[in-house]
């Protein structure tokens, strides 16, 4: 099957097996290895990417479902070399340890701010409910998201 879609603002046209998972297309065809596989069944969120502004588990999305969509992966967050606010907030808040959950966490958090620029702590925790982390206890991840949201707000009001 021919897959035409946009990844990180770049248009692609690829010949792929319609049964293949978006995660494999990204990792194996496009060499975008930022999204990780932690479970392969939609339970850990390590493979999270943003598809048309919504966070999705790319291990559950078939290539055929990605047709005509716009995908944003962790590699697209700092597209012009400058770190995204969310990335900077994760670094500043010590939200990264082994880093394996980080790409997925960043994309879930980013998608949350796209739909809710000023989330409550509860909304943050709910948005991250499908992203497992074994290292951080989520404490500094939640802090980072709060931080990024308030930075975004300040910027918006200027």
């Amino acid at each position: 099957m021919e897959l035409e879609f946009k990844v990180n603002d770049k248009a692609y046209s690829l010949e792929v097996d319609p049964e293949s998972r978006l995660l494999d297309v990204l990792r194996e065809e496009l060499g975008l290895t930022g999204a990780k596989e932690g479970c392969g069944e939609g339970e850990c969120g390590a493979c999270t990417v943003i598809m048309d502004d919504l966070a999705v588990n790319s291990c559950l999305v078939l290539a055929s479902q990605a047709r005509g969509k716009e995908i944003l992966t962790v590699e697209g967050l700092a597209a012009n070399g400058e770190l995204d606010r969310m990335q900077q907030a994760f670094i500043d808040n010590g939200a990264i340890q082994c880093g394996f959950c980080t790409p997925g966490m960043l994309m879930s958090a980013k998608a949350l701010l796209l739909r809710e620029p000023n989330p409550t702590e509860e909304e943050i925790r709910t948005a991250l409910a499908g992203n497992l982390c074994r290292c951080t206890g989520y404490v500094n991840i939640v802090n980072a998201v709060k931080d990024a949201a308030s930075a975004e707000e300040t910027e918006g009001s200027v």
Binding site: A35, V74, L83, I91, G99, T102, P103
Partner: peptide, 11 residues
């Protein structure tokens, strides 16, 4: 900060 935090945050 962690020495490889940027590499991890950018994938």
């Amino acid at each position: 900060p962690l020495h490889d935090a940027v590499a991890k945050a950018t994938g």
